[in-house]
Structures are given as C-alpha cells and as structure tokens.
Amino acid sequence: MNKLVAEFFGTAVLVLIGCGSVALGGEAIGTVGVALAFGLAIVAMAYAIGPISGCHVNPAVSLALFVAGKMTLPSMLQHWVAQFAGALMGALILWAIVGSTAGGLGTNGWGEGYGGGYPMLSALIFEIVFTLIFTVVILGSTGERAAPHFAGLAIGLTLVAIHLVGLKVTGVSVNPARSFGPAVLVGGTPLAQLWLFIVAPLVGGALGGAIYRFKILKV
C-alpha cells in the first residue's frame, strides 16, 4: 500500500508541476522553463519516493520493468491504477487553481493548431522512440552496476532533454498517465487524441524493457 500511495502522490506532483508550468508559466518561461519543470519534478520525486516505490510515476516505465522481468503483472497493474488516479488528482488540483484560464492544462496533441503543427505520424514516432530512450535510461541508471545515488538526476535530466526536443511536436507525453489527467478534464480534441499518448508510450516502454529482457543491453 505504501508503494501505491507513493506512486499516486508522485504522479500527481509530476502533473501539477509539469503541466502547471505550461498552464501558469506559458510563454513567460518558454520551452526551457517547461522542460526544467518536468525534469526537476522527476528528480524531486525520485529522491522523495524512489526508496518507497521506485518512483515509476509512469505506466510506460512500469511496463518496461515488467517486460524486463523486474516486476510482476499484478504489481504493474496496481501501479497503473495509482498512477492514473494520481495524474487525475494532479490535473484536478491544477484546474482548481487556474480554472478557465488553464490554457489546456498542458494537454498533449498534434496537428494543425497544436505546437509546430506536426502530423500524427510524427507524433507517433516521437512518442515511441523517446519513450524507448527514456525507459532505457531508467533501466540502465537503476541497474546493479550503475553509479549509486545518481539515478534520479540522470532520469530527470533525460526528461529535460526530451522536452527540449519534443515540446513543439506533441507537448511531450512519454507517459500515458501524464496525458490522461489533463485530457479527461479538458475533453474535446485532447481527449480524442489521448489514444496515441497511451498506445505509443506503452509500445516504447515495452521495447525498452525487451532490450534488457533479451540482453541486447546488459547491466
């Protein structure tokens, strides 16, 4: 139960800080500011709840660990429930703060009128590939031979880099729960496009886990 509470809390914080930087910071902090908000939220949660739950705060990460043989199926599913619920709570708190001026609550998307106007195929490729990269970094930096105490920093900085590259493409999900919370509250196009931000990160996470499961990379 402690693990699930930690995952709920950590995912809520990630959405509140990361998506909050979009809704409240916007153009004032720019791409770099939003990227840092997401990355620093992960760093903070990694050291706060990492010793309790591993700080997945991301269904794609939990799936990667399951595929890699580092997590059981029941545990993964329980983590998913906590993560999606936490993301919705974070989005609800953010919505209560900013209300109708939410600017989309930091929702993900693609196509005309969103970011750089990139097509669905670009969004799909980006989310799969960069979730794969993200989960490989997580599995590598938390492995037995990894440098101790630096995993949180490595993972957070990787998320910063991913946001610097992809904010104009999809707003960067690489995390189905992060996309779920804001989209459910905003509705409309973000909700209609939510399927991609669930499917693509899960595919990327599964591929990342498979790389370790089949010892393509060894830790």
Rank of each mutant, 00 (worst) to 15 (best):
63 L>M: 10
114 Y>L: 00
122 S>I: 10
123 A>W: 05
72 T>K: 12
6 A>S: 11
144 E>Y: 13
148 P>V: 14
141 S>T: 15
198 I>E: 04
49 I>Q: 01
172 V>M: 13
20 G>E: 03
187 G>H: 11
109 G>P: 03
52 I>Y: 07
25 G>L: 11
31 T>Y: 15
210 A>R: 08
31 T>A: 12
32 V>Q: 10
29 I>C: 06
102 A>L: 03
146 A>I: 12
77 L>S: 07
162 I>R: 04
66 F>N: 00
175 N>Q: 13
120 M>T: 06
148 P>H: 15
136 V>A: 08
4 L>K: 03
27 E>R: 15
143 G>T: 05
175 N>I: 03
192 A>Y: 10
2 N>R: 09
126 F>T: 00
7 E>T: 01
33 G>E: 08
196 L>G: 00
69 G>L: 13
138 I>Y: 11
160 V>I: 15
111 G>M: 01
162 I>A: 06
151 A>M: 15
134 F>D: 00
61 V>E: 01
161 A>I: 12
66 F>C: 05
50 G>D: 01
173 S>P: 11
10 G>Y: 01
62 S>W: 04
186 V>A: 05
60 A>N: 00
158 T>A: 13
165 V>Q: 09
183 A>S: 13
44 A>F: 15
153 L>S: 03
90 G>V: 04
107 T>M: 01
210 A>S: 08
157 L>I: 12
160 V>A: 14
162 I>M: 08
191 L>Q: 00
9 F>H: 01
149 H>F: 14
75 S>Q: 11
43 V>L: 14
16 L>K: 04
134 F>G: 00
83 Q>P: 08
101 T>S: 09
98 V>K: 09
70 K>S: 05
108 N>S: 07
45 M>W: 12
139 L>N: 10
105 L>V: 09
31 T>E: 05
41 A>T: 02
216 I>A: 15
171 G>F: 13
51 P>Y: 09
19 C>G: 11
81 V>Y: 04
212 Y>P: 01
51 P>K: 08
194 L>K: 07
61 V>Y: 03
90 G>N: 08
162 I>P: 01
93 I>F: 14
7 E>R: 02
90 G>Y: 05
166 G>E: 09
5 V>A: 13
77 L>M: 12
138 I>A: 06
19 C>Q: 14
13 V>C: 10
112 E>H: 13
112 E>N: 08
107 T>G: 02
74 P>R: 14
153 L>N: 01
63 L>R: 02
190 P>I: 07
108 N>W: 09
204 G>E: 04
68 A>T: 05
39 G>P: 06
63 L>Q: 04
135 T>Q: 14
157 L>K: 09
89 M>Y: 08
92 L>E: 01
62 S>H: 12
10 G>P: 02
115 G>N: 02
22 V>G: 06
12 A>L: 12
43 V>S: 05
122 S>T: 10
175 N>E: 09
219 V>P: 01
78 Q>T: 10
50 G>F: 05
40 L>F: 15
50 G>Y: 04
79 H>N: 06
111 G>T: 01
83 Q>N: 12
54 G>R: 07
21 S>T: 07
